[in-house]
């Protein structure tokens, strides 16, 4: 979507003058993309572009969420997602509280629910949660009164990452319908893959998951996803490649013989770019392992939109915060 049409959307939703959250948005939390409709996903994408435009590409601070407080509750290391949420909150005029702690609650002696309740008692309006264990934001949403935003729960979902990936594709191709998007790498341990799969399928894209058989379940086919173990075979058909990081930290047992062998089979390099479609988009959720999932030439090459993804991340997170907190008296849905 161009900036002109983004501004049109902003005007249509009275974004700049009398901002209101549309009635078509009725969620209190953003826990994943699995249970959002295509319309709801599109709404977030549209608002992301509108808010990005309204902040004059990040140069102007809005006061849409003035007086609201957002807590970043990160139980797992993160720099980009945490900073992205912080910046998004600040560009909307909200205050932020940062809490980070690594390790599970067993190691700390305080349950993560108690930690979250403590933060909530500081009267925050939303908590942004990242945790190495799947389902933690869902558990928090049952124990807290405020909004909960999933910033990545184990290998389960990372909805804002899925949304920013999809927004980046839409900006380049106009629409997702009919595009072939391949997620390459460690699908089993990837929350980014899961959120992308739900979002892409709902918006009409064809999705391929590709990687070593120990990390790519055949069962994905039952959800209408193509499963492939050969990047070279699917390469000529792909419009977009999303190169997932190998999550060494989540793999209890090394699922492939060596990084060397992995790069031979799945790394995106110049030679593979030559066998791709001329306008292929190369994406990566980051942090990227240069030389593992992709070579530096590809990461910095003309097909790469990796840094645009980062910029879009802030826009998506602004839209998310605004939709969840933008009503004066949020309805509890």
């Amino acid at each position: 979507m161009s900036n002109t049409s983004a501004l049109a959307v902003a005007a249509q939703h009275s974004m700049v003058n009398a901002p209101t959250v549309p009635d078509s948005w009725q969620h209190k939390h953003l826990l994943g993309l699995e249970h959002l409709s295509a319309e709801e996903i599109t709404l977030i994408l549209d608002y992301a572009e509108a808010l990005h435009a309204a902040t004059l590409n990040g140069r102007k601070k809005l006061d849409l969420l003035k007086g609201r407080t957002i807590a970043n509750l990160f139980f797992e290391n993160s720099t980009r997602t945490r900073n992205s949420f912080s910046l998004a909150a600040k560009r909307l005029g909200a205050d932020t509280v940062e809490f980070s702690s690594s390790g599970s609650s067993v190691a700390k002696g305080e349950t993560f629910i108690d930690t979250a309740k403590t933060i909530e008692a500081m009267l925050v309006d939303a908590v942004v949660v990242r945790h190495s264990s799947a389902g933690t934001p869902h558990m928090l949403s049952k124990h807290l009164g405020c909004s909960v935003i999933n910033a990545g729960d184990g290998p389960h979902e990372h909805p804002t990452q899925g949304l920013l990936d999809i927004l980046t594709i839409r900006q380049h191709r106009g629409s997702l319908a009919g595009l072939t998007v391949a997620m390459v790498g460690d699908i089993a341990h990837s929350r980014t893959a899961r959120s992308n799969i739900w979002g892409l399928l709902k918006l009409g894209a064809k999705v391929i998951v590709c990687g070593p058989a120990t990390l790519v379940s055949k069962n994905w086919e039952k959800l209408g996803v193509e499963v492939s173990y050969s990047l070279d075979k699917i390469l000529p058909r792909c419009d977009v490649l999303n190169l997932l990081r190998i999550q060494f930290e989540r793999q209890a047992i090394r699922p492939f013989p060596s990084v060397h062998e992995y790069t031979l089979l799945y790394a995106m390099n110049q030679e593979r770019i030559r066998r791709s479609k001329a306008d292929i988009l190369i994406m990566a959720p980051g942090p990227i392992n240069r030389g593992v999932e992709l070579t530096p030439e590809v990461a910095d090459g003309p097909h790469s939109v990796i840094l645009e993804q980062v910029t879009n991340g802030i826009a998506i997170r602004m839209a998310t915060l605004w939709l969840l907190l933008g009503r004066p008296n949020p309805t509890n849905v």
Binding site: S104, S105, T111, S133, A134
Partner: peptide, 10 residues
């Protein structure tokens, strides 16, 4: 109760 209030992995 406190043991089941942990993350599902833990």
């Amino acid at each position: 109760l406190e043991k089941k209030m942990l993350e599902i992995d833990a």
